[in-house]
Design a protein around this nucleic acid. Structure first.
Length: 437
RNA sequence: GGAGAGGUGGCUGAGUGGUCGAAAGCGCUUGACUCGAAAUCAAGUGUGCUCGAAAGGGUACCGUGGGUUCGAAUCCCACCCUCUCCGCCA
């Protein structure tokens, strides 16, 4: 949610954002409602002031005098009830409109209608070369018996999979590797230095968050919509998270954080659930697009002036992790029409997938500014004692499923086995992944 | 799931219909004292909305949402949460 004061003072900027993001919000209507809201509020407050004043008189009044004043008050009150109701209705409409206003994109965000407008910022590594024809992960996975989508289809339906054998060891190896980096002040400092970023290298606190959450809190994260994308248990008013971000973000809701305590960083490991409602027929083979996948997610709370740098730090971490795995990737600046509604700036990491002969999204990084913290009521108090909303960043460390695909396809060998990336060998305990049995 | 207790400002905690945005203590800020610190003394110290150039004013907020009343932290209803005990359980 944007601040209504900000909208009032930056009408053109906000209108421009609505257009660039392809949102459908009538800002003029919002401003008109806001004027009405303010006027009505003033009238009501004046009447309440009158009411409070007269109430005190009643206490002091005696006998018949008292009866008379009370009667007059009953009239005043009757007149207010209607206005009060009108105000409530107005406020409801006003809130709905205000919530639908998207965040303003950063000045350096490319403008474009959809993913065709995204811009590759930099590339690392060259697409992996093979002296044989590389296979897709679904074929390798089936042949080795480490990915079983057929049985999963019978048991759970489409877009579910059994991961088996050494692939499971690889999953936990990825998590261990990432957590080792994320919890080390020294490694983080080195990453920041290499990226030329002046940040405080406070380590990430590892978290295993709940995967169910209240619908209203998800709403405050601006992640409940589109609801068709969520698994929603109406009887319990609970929603399955689509990312650990959804339950990490509210870790400090209704809280005022002292400036000295920032930055606060979390690394949350959880399963993510997505209905993939609008993705019928897309990526149906393999495990690229699943209803359920595990993910290690980064979330942080920083001072507004540190927001951009924090995001660049997050991207640097993502790149560092991919470089450890020696996976060729590119960093993409997501354009206005393709970015999330609450995003101020978004980058994706796309990793080379030889089986599909293209780069595919493996990580994302969202800088929200104060868009989420305003609704979550997560604030900070600075040294001068002033209150502001903290700025929030979230990013993928490893989306396990897609990272496994990248490893399988890039490290496949002519004999059908998969080489284990050097950085993972200590965690997997072997250097070749063969058949599950 | 059953029984009980309870949710008040940064914290502890008083307040059961009006003068209560809320006692007191702690904490914090500023000042005095001091070479300095501690101790002591004095003053100040919530947030949103809104009017105002500012000073300041109005209004709302005592878990959340409704209701009763001229007037609600206080009474009524619903919900949420926390704690204790019992039951069940990885």
């Amino acid at each position: 949610m944007l601040d209504i004061h900000f909208i009032r003072e930056n009408i053109d900027l906000v209108k421009d954002a609505v257009v660039k993001k392809g949102a459908d919000v009538d800002i003029d209507q919002l401003l008109k409602l806001d004027d009405e809201r303010k006027k009505l509020r003033q009238e009501l407050d004046a009447k309440r002031a009158e009411q409070n004043r007269r109430s005190n008189e009643i206490q002091l009044a005696k006998g018949g005098e008292r009866e008379k004043v009370i009667e007059a008050m009953q009239h005043l009150k009757a007149g207010m009830a209607e206005e009060e109701e009108r105000y409530q209705e107005l406020l409801k409409e006003w809130t709905k409109l205000l919530l639908s206003v998207p965040n303003v994109p950063s000045p350096d965000t490319p403008v474009g209608p959809d993913e065709s407008g995204n811009v590759v910022v930099r590339k690392w590594g060259e697409p992996t070369k093979f002296d044989f024809k590389p296979k897709a992960h679904w074929d390798i996975g089936r042949e080795l018996g480490i990915i079983d989508t057929e049985r999963a289809g019978e048991v759970s339906g489409a877009r579910f999979a059994y991961l088996k054998g050494d692939l499971v060891l690889m999953q936990f190896a990825l998590i261990s590797l990432a957590l080792k980096v994320l919890t080390s002040r020294e490694e983080l400092a080195a990453i920041a230095e290499k990226a030329g970023l002046d940040i405080v290298p406070t380590p990430f606190v590892p978290v295993i968050p709940p995967v169910f959450m209240r619908s209203d809190v998800m709403g405050r994260m601006a992640r409940l919509q589109p609801i068709e994308e969520r698994y929603f248990f109406e009887k319990d008013d609970l929603v399955l998270v689509g990312s650990a971000e959804h339950t990490l973000g509210p870790l400090h809701m209704n809280e005022t954080i002292d400036e000295a305590q920032l930055p606060i960083r979390y690394a949350g490991y959880s399963t993510a659930f997505r209905r993939e409602a609008g993705a019928a027929g897309k990526d149906t083979r393999g495990i690229l697009r699943q209803h359920q996948f595990d993910k290690l997610e980064l979330e942080s709370f920083v001072r507004p002036e540190d927001g951009y740098r924090e995001q660049e730090f997050f991207v640097a971490i993502q790149e560092h992790l991919m470089q450890l795995l020696k996976l060729p990737y590119q960093v993409v600046a997501i354009c206005t029409g393709d970015m999330g509604k609450p995003d101020h700036r978004q980058f994706d990491i796309e990793t080379w997938m030889p089986g599909q002969d293209t780069y595919r999204e493996t990580q994302t990084s969202d800088y929200m500014g104060g868009y989420q913290s305003r609704r979550l009521n997560t604030r900070m108090r600075n040294k001068e004692g002033d209150l502001t909303h903290v700025h929030m960043n979230d990013a993928t460390a490893f989306a396990i499923g897609r990272t496994l695909i990248a490893v399988i396809e890039n490290y496949q060998q002519a004999d059908g086995t998969i080489k284990v990336p050097e950085a993972l060998v200590p965690y997997v305990g072997k250097d070749i992944i063969g058949a599950a049995r």
